[in-house]
Computed example of a mutant assay.
Amino acid sequence: MPLDPTAAELLAAVQASPRAVAAHDRAAWVGLFGADAAVNDPVGSRPHIGRAAIERFYDTFIGPNTITFQVDHDFVSPPTVVRDLLIQTTMSTGATVVVPMHLRYDLVEEDGVWKITRLAAHWELAAMIMQLLRTGLPGLAAALKLGPQLIANQGLDGAAGMMRGLLGVGRAGKRVATRFLSAAAATDIGRVRGMLDHNSVIELPAGTPISVEQFTNRVRNMKWDKLIAAGREVSASVDFDTIHGVAIIEFATGATRITAIRIFTDA
């Protein structure tokens, strides 16, 4: 199905990001972001807000590395684009990691140009660190190099902010998300309600609120994979009724009760 003009413009703005990364074009990549934009990478870490912070983020995590995007699906829900993908990063020491990821881009129009106002990268920091260390000496060398580089560009406070990405709902959240998706796929309304907070929001597609009954009817026999726990959110690649999508499940602070589920789809 052809995209409408706005959706096509949003997707084009997002697709410019991997091109700038591949070209190591710092100015082009930073220029994709709007005024006071935020990069939350990974979700759960402290966001990088504003141009100067985003430039430092580039200098720390993008500039020194070779990064390729392997995109499986794009989901456009104006003014948001969600990408279901793998990112392969080869560091200066030769260590390579492949990270499953869901990327959410929220965009805003500035002077007739679509700009990224928030980039939320759903991936698991602990899993990436373990994968890096399993590469042996190149991975250890990369980790030892990244630490001083992180402190030099971000400061001690920034380094601590990055390490917050190790916290969040983790495996417990993924277990709850799995039970929730299983109950929804089985149209078990009682179990679905039992895992929701009292003011929970369900959007399918994202931006369209629906009832629990409507939700369970829509996603009957749903299948899912690629669960990613980042911060207080779990994302998953989902399929139901010939529709592909990415579900983002949000959890209450200090609990495993679900406060929102939004499914971005290709329908």
Rank of each mutant, 00 (worst) to 15 (best):
P79V: 04
Q131M: 15
A126W: 06
L103V: 13
V82G: 02
T80K: 09
T117H: 15
E124D: 15
T96Y: 03
S77D: 13
L119D: 01
P78C: 09
L85S: 03
E110C: 13
P78T: 09
A120H: 01
M91R: 14
V81H: 07
M128Q: 13
L85A: 14
D84R: 02
D106Q: 09
T96C: 06
I129C: 07
W123I: 00
T90V: 11
Y105R: 07
D111H: 12
G94A: 12
D106Y: 03
L133N: 01
Y105V: 00
L119P: 01
D84F: 00
L107I: 06
T90G: 05
M91Q: 11
L85T: 04
A95N: 06
A95M: 07
L119S: 02
V97D: 03
I129A: 12
V99M: 15
P79R: 02
W123R: 03
Q88R: 14
M91I: 04
S77Q: 15
V99R: 08
L132T: 07
T96E: 07
M101P: 02
V97K: 06
T117F: 07
P79S: 07
V98I: 14
D111A: 15
A95L: 04
T135M: 06
S77P: 01
T93K: 06
S92A: 12
V97P: 04
P138H: 10
G136L: 10
V97G: 02
V99G: 03
M130E: 15
L140C: 08
D106V: 08
R118K: 12
